[in-house]
Structures are given as structure tokens and as C-alpha cells.
Amino acid sequence: MEKYQLSTTRTFEDVWADMAPSEEALSSSPYPKKEVFYLRGDHTGYRWYVENFPVHRDMATPELKHEFNELMKDILETEPIKSGIPGILEFCKDYPESVLKDGSMNRYNFYYEGEAGNYWIQFLDMPKNYNFYAHAYVK
């Protein structure tokens, strides 16, 4: 990452206090009311393939979208993350405090407090699965 400095400690726990199902979301499960959308990614071996999923699209301001896009560009198009799971492992080894072990899978949690929104970035190291999630929340 070149432009943005991610945190492992600035968790946005308040986000989880208020949840409700969203009509726009993929699943009928409850989502944080502050969540605007999230991005899910898997690495093809050559590049990241990402999809965007709305949660509360009406809260997406142009500033938040711009900030999110810049952040994603900085994470996914910059080495070492650019190269997929090996890059994730290389990047995350400097942040042992970011890891939560779910048995055979490790999940690495990072956070970024922006000006337009707050962001939760998650890397997962399980092969043949989605390896990247980025959630955008309003402040």
C-alpha cells in the first residue's frame, strides 16, 4: 500500500450495535444499518476479480464512492496484495495482531478511518474461496 495506512486497532464496533435486514442485500440476514456496500474479491492467479454488493445504496455519497475506489486501488493494485494469497501472507506477516484463526482458515482484519466513511478490510487465506472483503460504512 502506498497512499493509505491501515489500522489493526481502530475497529468500528459501534457499527455492529444496530443491525437489520436489507432489501437490497444478497442475503436475508441482518446487516449493519451503517453499511453502504461491500466488495468481495477472489484472485484468478493473475489478477483480482471483484464484485460490489449494495447494502444501503441510498447512503452512498460521491465522496464515499471516490474514497472507497481510491482505497481499493491502493490495496488491490499495489504489491504485495496485487499477487493474491502469497501477497496477502507476505503483507499480513508484519501484522500478527490482525489475524483471527478459524481453524484451517486465517482471517486478517484491517480498518481505515476515512473522511467520507469508515472501512473494514478483511483478507482470507483459504484457497478456492473468496479472499478479500471490503465493507464501507457511513460515519
Binding site: 441482518p30 461491500y38 478459524d102 481453524g103 484451517s104 478483511q122
Partner: peptide, 17 residues
Amino acid sequence: VSIIKLTNKNLGEYQDM
């Protein structure tokens, strides 16, 4: 194997899986 409790925080990823 892992025995994991689904929470609001991890539910989305396991549903995707």
C-alpha cells in the same frame, strides 16, 4: 476440523463459501 459459531461478523463470508 473447526467448530465455528456464526456471528453477525462472520456470517456473510460463510454464506458466500
